[in-house]
Design a protein around this nucleic acid. Structure first.
Lengths: 215, 215
DNA sequence: TAGATTGTTAATCGATTAACAATC
DNA sequence: TAGATTGTTAATCGATTAACAATC
């Protein structure tokens, strides 16, 4: 579901990294200085052997007989992911979904700042969302370059998704998170992650029909 | 990342079903009566052999030398997924994320209706989102039973997620879509799908650091 | 018939996990 | 020392894909 440039580390490992980071922050907030892979396994529902193996792709961070030093491992994880500093986002689509993304506190809390919002609808251009003014999407390239934005979020209707992806690639954006159901194609060197929220819901539906069927 | 009841069909297959359905609808809207697995592969970025194999778990829907009849296959997919009728959702959390979910048109377009919204914040209870009044979360069980709601969406802060999951299970909700970063635990028979939107963003970050590193 | 495309087998590939020596 | 837990190997498991006979 994600096209990306090759690397020796499996995609699945990378996907679990943020899950580990999250669990580690929980553990830190509970005040533990040290944590075992068994404890992390409980919190993440990932097999403990897998956690150790995943971590070992990046180094030996633990101490046998003791576990992992929480603060240190958080640091390492943030370093590997690149979430040790904030990242500016360009958001295209100022509808319901876009507005929600722009005002979602969870983003800032984990190092993301929506620093520019775009739309093509004249009725929306000029509006404020939080403290950001919605700009015409035709100014995307200029703004992205000026603000050195590397990450773009697509929150537009299906029919406009590919077009926006093209604009983003041209604007020098290197990572695209696509919330529309349309699978977009981009040039090499741009990473797209397609993540349609309704798709997840439809997927869970399958299990619902089975449950009902039995009942 | 999703705990679910066992079945002989791999999780990956189920995850791809909505992707196929989406592509099929695209094809239908373009007016084609028939589609090959090769064409579907282009649209979904899923290997064509895999598409054929995935479909074969549910039956033989195609004609050799010809392909799949689009309308018929859409029907079959909807049938398998249970998206051949609308589903009512209970949404807990009337903050930014919750409001966005409630007013997102993409839901209704694919057969989901948010039919009740809950929060625990007295400042939010009584507010309207669209044409739905936010209710006290303590009335969840009553409302869910009265409206026969089987699907719940968690859109509350991390600290409240587990509590809400417990309430939902107790209310007879069978499928939970959890948008918080907290991995929640539920009783057998309840399916949870954890899908933190910021996690996806952090995950793509990894590829960004690599790209920057090279540049 | 010749060309196309499915459904399915068998081969490949990769990811998960159990197990355990190393070591704190 | 005894107990705990890592890092890593080897075994297992499952998913992906190439290939092709069946057949439209």
């Amino acid at each position: 579901m994600a096209g990306h440039t090759s690397s020796s580390i499996p995609e699945g490992v990378i996907e679990r990294l943020p899950v580990y980071l999250n669990a580690l922050m929980q553990v830190r907030d509970e005040g533990s200085g040290t944590v075992s892979s068994a404890k992390l396994s409980e919190l993440t529902e990932v097999n403990s052997a897998q956690i150790r193996r995943d971590l070992s792709y990046f180094g030996s961070f633990g101490r046998r007989g003791v576990g992992y030093e929480v603060i240190m491992l958080i640091d390492k994880m943030q370093n590997i992911l690149g979430s040790d500093h904030t990242h500016r986002l360009a958001l295209v689509g100022a509808g319901h979904l876009g507005s929600a993304i722009a005002s979602y506190n969870g983003l800032r809390a984990r190092g993301f700042i929506v620093s520019a919002i775009f739309d093509s609808d004249p009725a929306k251009i000029g509006n404020r969302i939080g403290d950001i003014v919605v700009q015409d999407v035709s100014t995307l390239a200029r703004a992205a370059e000026a603000q050195k934005i590397r990450i773009g979020i697509i929150a537009v209707p299906t029919t406009a998704a590919q077009e926006v992806a093209d604009l983003m690639s041209a604007a020098g954006i290197r990572v695209i998170l696509n919330y529309s159901p349309m699978i977009v194609r981009v040039a090499d060197g741009v990473v797209v992650h397609n993540t349609d929220p309704v798709r997840e819901l439809m997927h869970t539906l399958y299990y619902l029909s089975r449950a009902e069927g039995v009942a």
